[in-house]
Every structure is written in structure tokens, then in C-alpha cells.
Write a protein that binds this DNA or RNA. Structure first.
Lengths: 128, 128
DNA sequence: TCGATAGTTCAATAAACATTGAACATAGGA
DNA sequence: TCCTATGTTCAATGTTTATTGAACTATCGA
């Protein structure tokens, strides 16, 4: 039987392969910034979210596209479990490569949460 | 006599108009990141550099394009003096809007200076 | 006043990007 | 075993992007 593509974990860059321009470019898109922000908010509750939790941000296939970019640049990790894909922030790797960067971006985003139309923390938790 | 366009200072966004996605997008381009980095290195010597100081990074008209993007997003300020345009980083405004962000990016860039082909500090100073 | 220097503007081009919907693959439950 | 939920793949579309060179404008100094 031929191995099934979809059940395999997609490729991720190693920590050392994470590149600053790619990370910044990823974070510069409002939808991807919202994904990363929501992931960060959720971290206190659980470190993972699945694709469906972001349905409010864009259409399904568009989200797949943005997830791939976030994965390719090293910001997110995807874990496959059954029919779900669980995402988490690669906090430690980011912190090791670019100390303070992710937090500076997240705090900047939090400051402009209204302007950027980001979900408030309570929204995320309640939506569970 | 009709006022001469080129002698006027180009428009800049106010501090409040500076937007996070635009700033990140600006910094995600390797040439623009190099410009900002060089400007930051130079700050200890003088807070300003003129277009010609960046000739190593790209062609003249391409530089004009990147300078415009940096100015439009609020990262740089341009001052016109004779036939020169002097650039400086809008450090205070950036710090007020997004505390810690610029420094986190600059430190990250410094860590990857080789990979990003950024000018070493001594190169900048010696090139004067 | 002329020439050189500094930088801008404009049009053209090729590549990358975000977005959509339709078709598909996979896993789990009735 | 079939139905449903979850998510991916693919092709098509229109937009934005970076880069180039040629023509231009403005300023300074000889």
C-alpha cells in the first residue's frame, strides 16, 4: 500500500535554518500576525490550537496557505493527530535565534489590538 | 515662480500613523534591513547619512524606491539639504509606538550580520 | 554660465503574493 | 460500510513587489 501523504508531518526548518527576513515577512501579514497572536494568547491555557480554531480569520484553503508560510519560516510547528492538525508557536527556537524579538512583536501587536482587529484573550478562551 | 518639487521635504506619517504590519514588512526586505542597520550603526557617530552612503547596497533608482518605503512606513526621516537628502532613523517615534521592537530587530540582525551580509561597524566608520 | 554631482521620476518587466472555489484525501463515528 | 468533519491540493485570478535604465531636475562650485 502506498504511504498516505496527508498523514505525514510536513517538513519544518531546523532552529538554525530560521531566517530573520522570512520571519519578519511572515509577521507582516495581518492574517498571519493574528494567527500568531491568537496562538500566543492561548499558550496559557494550552500550547496548541487546530486549524479550525482560526476559521474566523480567513477561508479554509487560504488558512492552509498561511499556515504553510508560518511553518516554512519556523514560527509554527504542526503536529498531525487524526484528522486534525495541531499548531504551536516555536517559542524556544525563536527565542534562541532572535532573543526578545517575538515578545516585542507580540507586545506591539497587543498595543494595537483594536487597530489590527485581534481577538481579545477572553474571546479565545471562551470560544473553546 | 513655481515652487520646485524636489526641494520640498517629502511627506512623513505622524507618530500615531505608524503601523506595525507596514514596519515589519519594510524590515523584512534584506536591502531595507541593511539600510536601517547601517543607519543604526552610524548613530554613534552622527545620526544622519545621505543616499550616496548606501550606494553599495543597490542602484540609485532602486535605493530611491526603498527610501520611499522606509519613509512611508515611518522608519526613516528625510531632510533635504542642497542636493543631498539626509536620512535618520525615527528612533523615538518607533520606541514610543512599539517599545523594544526596533532594538530587538537590530540585535537579531547583528547576530546574523554575516548571513545577512551587513556592513560591520568599522566598515561604516572607515568609509566616511 | 557651464559642468559636474546628487538624487528623482517614469515606464517596463518579471517574480512573488494573497485569495478563491472545486476536487480530493484522511480519519472517526453512526 | 458509508457519512461527515477536517484539512489539503491545485489551477486560476488579480495585485503588489523589486529591479532596471533612460530621461529629468535641482544645486553647487569653478
Amino acid at each position: 500500500m502506498i504511504p498516505h501523504i496527508m498523514s505525514r508531518t510536513p517538513p519544518h526548518p531546523t532552529r538554525e535554518q530560521i531566517e530573520l527576513p522570512l520571519v519578519l515577512d511572515c509577521l507582516s501579514d495581518p492574517i498571519r500576525l493574528a494567527i500568531v497572536y491568537q496562538l500566543a494568547q492561548q499558550e496559557r491555557v494550552s500550547s496548541e490550537l487546530c486549524c479550525g480554531d482560526f476559521n474566523g480569520l480567513a477561508g479554509k484553503s487560504n488558512l492552509t496557505y498561511h499556515f504553510a508560510k508560518l511553518r516554512d519560516c519556523g514560527l509554527m510547528q504542526t503536529r498531525v493527530a487524526g484528522t486534525n492538525r495541531f499548531m504551536r508557536l516555536r517559542r524556544e527556537d525563536l527565542e534562541a535565534r532572535f532573543p526578545g524579538l517575538l515578545d516585542a512583536v507580540l507586545q506591539s501587536a497587543a498595543k494595537d489590538a483594536d487597530r489590527l482587529q485581534l481577538v481579545a484573550e477572553c474571546d479565545v478562551v471562551e470560544a473553546k
